[in-house]
Amino acid sequence: METNNVNMDDQKQDATKSPSGFSIIWREFIKDKVALISLIFLVILTTLVYGVSLFLNQEEIVRVDLFAIHEPPSEEFILGTDYGGRDVFGQLIIGTRNSLSIGILVTLATGIIGVVYGVVAGYFGGQIDNVLMRILDFFLILPMIMTVIVFVTLVPDYGVITFSFIMTMFLWMGIARLIRSRALQEKELDYIQASKTLGSSHTKIIFTQLLPNITSLIVVTMTLNLAANIGLESGLSFLGFGFPESTPSLGTLLSYARNPQTLEFRWWIWLPAAILIFVLMLAVRNVGEALKRAADARQRRG
């Protein structure tokens, strides 16, 4: 698309001083206003949500109050109350915090598993790669959402930790495959071969040579995964197989909309959560896309 002029810019950069990773990213954000706004929004939202929820009492908010059922937005309850008389606004804050937390947790966990798995398979190749890829294939056969739901119902003491664990168990394959194919390409390059002849051990090569060269891919993938994971968690909570009601997430608020009455007449319960999830996912994606462009010299705008 805009390859030509960008390439010229690149050459100009080479001629002068090479920009550091951060300044490349920073320039990309300056150039892409949407991504910049998304980033600022995310920073503000995160601080706000984690900050405000410090002052909110989760037990207080999720306590059923039968005298205040289904109240529309008012001065006392900015966004009204749900069927248990619980403050929707408070749930929204806590829900966002919980959704973000689990999203980040699952993304990090799947990221670590995926990167380790992918690097080992790709770097060592051969039989190791074969075995690891067959195992991965078996995970890929399973219909993911259904498997997660089935596991959620099977686990005896179900809670936030087990839920993240189950999600992680069935979500690491994508990043593992991506990293593996990249590692497979990268290890054939001469600089890795050179390291071998220079006497570096495999561990050393992986950590000091291979990983620094695939960091951008990892960061970009994990950012995009974060958006997907927030969506997935809220979807599962929406179906009733995510967070328990005592720990509301954004999906929990949406799940009230499965009641046609709530959906039709009490928009204040579910619509804010719907918008928030949408905006959150869009913002995270915008940031991810900007990072992706920054990582690939041909796509850079800045």
Partner: peptide, 12 residues
């Protein structure tokens, strides 16, 4: 190595 471009780690 043959290729002076790929034989040096670009991140180092």
């Amino acid at each position: 190595f043959q290729d002076p471009y790929s034989s040096l780690n670009p991140r180092k």
